[in-house]
Structures are given as C-alpha cells and as structure tokens.
C-alpha cells in the first residue's frame, strides 16, 4: 500500500492502494468515475480509453505505479463541463451510440485524433479508431460524427 496523489480532470485525488492496482479499477470502483468502461482488461477493446497528458491510453493496462509523476489524467467526465465538447455534439448530431457502452472510449479516442489531425481522411479515421470496438455496429456513424466534428472545427479555425 502506498499513498499517492492523482491529477484527474484537474482535480487532485488521494488514493491509498497497492501500486499494481489497475487505473481502471481505481477510476471506476474506488473514485466512482464510471464513465470509463471495462470491456476486456487487456487493452484490446478501447472501452476504457482515457487521456494521460493528452495522449489516448487504455486505463485497464496502466497501474498506479506508472502514474506517480503527476501526469494529467482526463476521463470522459472531464472532457467538457456540460457534455458539449464539439466531438460530443457531433456524436449527438450523428445519433451515433446504440447501447452506448463503448462510446466514452470512442469519444476519447476521437478527441485525440482531431487534436493531432484536424482534417483526417476516412482511411486515417479508420486506422486511428481501429482499436476501439463497438459490438452494436455503430462504426459508420462514428466515422460520420468525426467527419462532422472535423468540418465544424476546421471552419472555425
């Protein structure tokens, strides 16, 4: 057991857990940030995608010991104040989710895609989003949502 401070969504959280505890369980079960989902536990489905220093990471495959340098962690709860990040708005416009379970991870992955590449081609979208699984088959609408968001963002800038 070790006491550790985590910087999540610009808020400090103190945790006192084994340093090999998965960040996913820390977020979900110890801190109650349940927007980040458990899907596979081995970084193959993307449901637990979060940002660590603005890079997409799979929370299930990070342990507390890897987060002892005060890294900035962002979860879906911290993406926007009112759920109105341009990506989230585009997701609503495209009516993308079905069951919705994978969508936090999809959205977190898409946010970093557009941050790195504001006008991705369809092939670039597919390649970047390929590790985020959706069993309901909403992929076409996810692509559409990303294209909507890219268009709106690029008009603004």
């Amino acid at each position: 057991m070790a006491s550790q401070s985590l910087n999540i969504n610009n808020k400090k959280y103190a945790v006192d857990l084994n340093e090999d505890t998965s960040l996913l369980w820390v977020l979900r079960e110890h801190l109650g940030l349940t927007g980040t989902k458990y899907g596979c536990g081995i970084a193959l489905c993307g449901s637990c995608t979060i940002h660590v220093d603005d890079k997409p990471m799979r929370a299930c495959s990070l342990t507390l010991s890897a987060l002892n340098k005060g890294q900035k962690i962002t979860t879906i709860e911290g993406l926007s104040k009112n759920g109105d990040h341009p990506i989230q708005q585009a997701w609503v416009e495209a009516q993308a989710p079905q069951c919705g379970y994978c969508q936090s991870g999809q959205i977190m992955q898409a946010v970093t895609l557009l941050a790195e590449n504001p006008n991705p081609t369809r092939e670039e979208i597919k390649a970047y989003m390929n590790g985020n699984l959706c069993r309901c088959g909403t992929y076409l609408r996810i692509v559409k949502a990303i294209e909507i968001a890219a268009k709106k963002t690029s008009v603004k800038t």
Partner: peptide, 27 residues
C-alpha cells in the same frame, strides 16, 4: 426524434449496472 438516451451516453453518465455504487458494497 433525437434518441432520448444519447445525451447521457456521450457524456459518460448513462448508468449501466456495472456502474452502480452502493454504500458498504462488496465485490
């Protein structure tokens, strides 16, 4: 009509059973 469940599903606040937290809960 826009689907009523979608806003919560893009905010990460839609509640699935796996998200339930109760006082004194065990695993």
């Amino acid at each position: 009509l826009p689907r009523v469940d979608i806003p919560a599903k893009v905010k990460g606040t839609a509640q699935f059973a796996i998200d339930i937290q109760l006082p004194e809960m065990l695993y």
